[in-house]
């Protein structure tokens, strides 16, 4: 028992349970929906994961340090729209500069959030609830009621979601999915190994203690929000590529899905625990449910949000009840271990 306790942590058990849940969901929908086990189903799920998980990674950075960003949906919509317009007006722009423009745009919006929260000492929930409305209304204001349409976009962008990174038979991995996975891996390494990443956990576990021990809490808050904004900007670019037609309500309500994915993925809403892989698993579960409910005949697709709400509640409830007991059990084990060794 002790050897098990030494090699795995309660958080890993939780992530394992999440993997089992995803498989259970796939098996369940497979038995309910005809022709479910087709490459197309999984490609579709993967494509919606790709956009969502990029935002979820940014959200995780912020939530790890006991904050929240409710404005991400508006940032995604804002960048998708204005990057789209920039491309329409200057079709000669290179793909790289487009991506950088999207990240810059999102980064600036995130920076504004970070400055208000860190230097104005306004609680994150209030700030981002406000900027959720402000960014969206700026978008509506400056769009002149026009829509970005697919036919006005350059061909490389419209075809981007169809590009395969590689394919084995009919099973293919889309390039945008690969990009999203790479981002997850990079940020998992960042939060595991870089001092910047470790500080996120330290601040989230106890902001006062972190500040007293000399961690630059304000600067960390600003940088985390800027990164969250930049990643939302990147997601805005992917959103534009995937959907092509962008109206002023693009990505409205996405913040709820993202927060849901992060919470379901085991990132504690009070900061200090969670991983990028958890965020990925949470996103996969939510995208699987969403895409599968669309095709499930017995239950109407309108059940989607009701189930999503329930799922968040269950995730948080199990975290607070089961995970805290597991942790206590692990901690006791540690104490016994020390006593035996002494």
């Amino acid at each position: 028992m002790n050897s098990i306790r030494r090699t795995i942590r309660p958080e890993q058990i939780r992530e394992f349970i999440l993997v089992l849940l995803i498989f259970a969901a796939i098996l369940f929908f497979g038995s309910q929906i005809e022709n479910y086990y087709q490459p197309r189903t999984f490609t579709r799920i993967a494509s919606s994961v790709a956009i969502l998980v990029v935002v979820a990674v940014g959200q995780t950075l912020v939530v790890l340090m006991r904050n929240i960003d409710l404005s991400v949906g508006s940032i995604v919509g804002f960048t998708a729209y204005f990057v789209g317009r920039a491309i329409v007006n200057n079709p000669e722009l290179s793909p790289l500069s487009i991506v950088l423009l999207a990240m810059l745009m999102g980064g600036i919006l995130g920076l504004v959030n970070g400055i208000i929260i860190a230097y104005g000492r306004v609680p994150a929930i209030i700030t981002t609830l406000g900027t959720l409305a402000i960014y969206r209304s700026l978008l509506v204001q400056f769009s002149d009621a026009q829509t970005i349409i697919t036919s006005a976009l350059p061909e490389w962008l419209v075809n981007l979601p169809q590009v395969n990174a590689f394919a084995i038979g009919e099973w293919e991995l889309k390039l945008i999915v690969l990009i999203a996975l790479v981002i997850v891996v990079i940020f998992q390494l960042v939060v595991t190994y870089l001092p910047w990443g470790r500080r996120l956990y330290a601040i989230g576990s106890n902001p006062d203690a972190a500040a007293m021990s000399g961690l630059p809490v304000t600067r960390m808050t600003v940088s985390a929000y800027t990164l969250c904004g930049a990643l939302s900007g990147l997601a805005g670019f992917l959103f534009l590529a995937r959907f092509g037609n962008i109206t002023v309500v693009a990505a409205q309500g996405m913040e709820l899905q993202v927060v849901a994915a992060v919470v379901v993925g085991g990132i504690n809403i009070f900061g200090g625990t969670g991983s990028m892989f958890g965020a990925l698993l949470g996103t996969v579960l939510i995208a699987t449910l969403e895409q599968s409910l669309l095709r499930w005949r017995i239950v109407s697709e309108f059940w989607r949000d009701a189930l999503l709400g329930l799922l968040i509640l269950l995730a948080v409830a199990t975290d607070s009840v089961i995970l805290s007991r597991l942790r206590a059990f692990w901690a006791r084990g540690g104490v016994e271990q020390v006593q035996i060794e002494n």
């Binding site: 929240i68 927060v259 949000d305 009701a306 709400g309 968040i312 509640l313 948080v316």
Partner: peptide, 10 residues
């Protein structure tokens, strides 16, 4: 915050 966010969606 989380409970009522779940409520907001649910």
């Amino acid at each position: 915050l989380v409970v009522t966010l779940a409520g907001l969606i649910g």
